[in-house]
């Protein structure tokens, strides 16, 4: 590309806009959104299944689970699918033949997926807040003595949970773009990305156990795992909120900084790899 062409946020925005439109047209986004929102709305039906926690804690926990699980699936599958759709349909070739940097292409794709993930988080977190608010209101009428100090659920923390999960999903989408940047098929990208996400969720075990391991080889492997992969449990802030406690600002800040760092690193790696890729 000519040196006179400058890096353009406007071009990134155009690619992002097209990516969002494409994602919304896909059935997967709608299906996961409906499934997650439906599960959250239906959490009340599982009240009888709850053995220990209070009802509101159970709904909160269940809702957080739905947001996290379906959001993770959406982040991996949508990022891989939308990236490979451009490669397989040869539209990437046409696009990159124009004055568009490969970095702009990757960033545009990522921004589009990030917007889709934001939509998902807003809808599901909104559904959770609504269900909790309504149920808490009903309980306040039945047992007002339990709510003498006002509402028990920290709704601000529930919203903060949603924001942090969005950051995590965005990091997962960026991670998927790293894999997709060198992978040859969509399926390979999805499977490998899910495996990496699983490792990232269990990374803390390697972090905590590498020193206790006996053999040098096992210690080395655990240390490498702990050092190379991010710890996605950094975003597991739901337990405290489900227990009726507000989210700690230090946790919010620390987790957000951690997520931001890995988001930037994964995007940089995806750009680096995509620039070396033959299309």
């Amino acid at each position: 590309m000519s040196a006179s062409v400058r890096f353009s946020p406007a071009r990134i925005a155009v690619i992002a806009e097209l990516t969002v439109l494409e994602a919304v047209r896909q059935r997967l986004f709608g299906a996961l959104l409906v499934l997650a929102a439906g599960m959250i709305a239906g959490a009340q039906l599982l009240r009888e299944f709850n053995f220990g926690s209070s009802e509101l804690k159970f709904i909160t926990d269940f809702g957080f689970g739905a947001v996290t699980l379906f959001g993770t699936i959406l982040a991996v599958v949508t990022a891989a699918q939308l990236f490979f759709a451009e490669i397989e349909n040869r539209t990437a070739l046409t696009l990159l033949a124009k004055p568009v940097f490969r970095a702009e292409f990757v960033l545009g794709k990522f921004a589009g997926v990030a917007v889709v993930l934001a939509l998902f988080v807003v809808v599901t977190t909104g559904a959770l807040v609504t269900v909790l608010w309504m149920r808490e209101g009903a309980l306040m009428e039945v047992a007002p003595e339990a709510f003498e100090r006002g509402r028990l659920v920290h709704y601000g923390s529930v919203v903060a949970f949603g924001a942090l999960q969005w950051l995590k999903f965005a990091a997962i989408a960026a991670l998927t773009l790293v894999v997709a940047s060198f992978a040859n098929t969509n399926l390979y990208s999805v499977v490998i990305s899910f495996l990496i996400v699983l490792i990232c969720h269990l990374q803390y075990l390697a972090q905590e156990s590498w020193q206790k391991l006996g053999s040098g080889l096992a210690r080395g492997a655990a240390l490498l795992l702990a050092s190379v992969f991010p710890n996605f449990q950094m975003f597991s802030v739901g337990d405290r909120i489900a227990a009726g406690q507000p989210i700690d600002p230090a946790v919010l800040g620390g987790s957000a900084a951690y997520g931001g760092l890995y988001l930037a690193v994964f995007l940089a790696l995806a750009i680096h790899l995509f620039r070396r890729r033959e299309i």
Partner: peptide, 9 residues
């Protein structure tokens, strides 16, 4: 389920 956050369930 565990990694997905459905701890209570």
């Amino acid at each position: 389920g565990l990694l997905g956050g459905f701890r209570a369930v």
